[in-house]
């Protein structure tokens, strides 16, 4: 019960804090709208009108990854800059239980992206919002956000040791969009990329969301994304413990 309360309070606090930050308003709303507009005109120019809902949906999903990336990657650095990383690490609960709700909040912020690109597509471009499996659509979004939050835990933990975390965040936005097939189908990518995409939970989450919205079976994607999220959680906890210990030994926790 105490753990559930800790997770809920941290998640809610982080969500409120990020909602008020200009950077996250941009990455979760403005940037996805720019990409949604770009994808709309691109697919329209390529005479693929059937893919317009796909474009709006994909731009929103791209936004979920961007929010997760900058929120999770920056979570530890923000704490460093604010001078609260050391007290948080020294506090009684395991640090993984403090970091996880923060990365989950970063992924949750991505809901703004999805909502804004779908509303934008409907209002500005008149794209009909007809989802083939609405219940599965909602479930697949929740599962994708949780799996991204757990992936964010692994990523954020790795950044404990790497002070230029922002640089990695800047770099990782486009490659994950490519590898997870969020907007470009994996079949167009070189074969050697496929195994890499299979071990990424967002690949399966995105596939489930696309299938639930546009037609297809979303359940295998939901199941695999959940399974991978569980594996990530175990890895994330181990990584947090190992890296936290190393950072304590090297006295680099509070270095900015």
């Amino acid at each position: 019960m105490r753990i559930a309360r800790l997770l809920a309070v941290c998640w809610w606090f982080q969500l409120k804090q990020m909602t008020k930050a200009g950077l996250f308003v941009f990455t979760s709303i403005i940037e996805p709208l720019i990409f949604a507009t770009l994808a709309y005109y691109l697919f329209k120019a390529g005479h693929r009108p059937g893919t317009l809902l796909y474009a709006a949906l994909s731009a929103g999903l791209m936004g979920i990854w961007t929010s997760t990336l900058f929120g999770s990657g920056g979570a530890i650095n923000f704490q460093r800059w604010q001078g609260v990383l050391e007290p948080l690490v020294a506090s009684p609960p395991p640090y993984a239980l403090i970091l996880f709700p923060q990365t989950l909040a970063a992924a949750s912020i991505g809901l703004y992206s999805l909502a804004s690109t779908l509303v934008w597509g409907r209002v500005i471009f008149g794209i009909p919002l007809h989802f083939v499996h609405p219940v599965a659509f909602a479930i697949s979004i929740v599962v994708t956000i949780v799996s991204l939050g757990v992936l964010g835990l692994v990523m954020g933990a790795s950044f404990i040791l790497y002070r230029e975390a922002n640089a990695l965040s800047n770099m990782l936005e486009f490659p994950i969009w490519i590898v997870t097939g969020v907007i470009v189908p994996l079949s167009l990518l070189p074969g050697w990329i496929h195994p890499l995409s299979w071990i990424l939970a967002p690949t399966w989450g995105y596939r489930a969301i696309h299938n639930a919205a546009l037609g297809g079976n979303p359940w295998p994607g939901i199941g695999i994304a959940l399974g991978l999220a569980a594996v990530y959680f175990v890895i994330g906890q181990a990584v947090v413990v190992a890296f936290e210990r190393r950072a304590r030994e090297r006295a680099t926790l509070s270095l900015v």
Binding site: L42, F174, I178, L189
Partner: peptide, 11 residues
């Protein structure tokens, strides 16, 4: 990313 998106959109 955009080169592959371009291939997919056939523009």
């Amino acid at each position: 990313f955009f080169a592959y998106l371009g291939r997919y959109s056939h523009v």
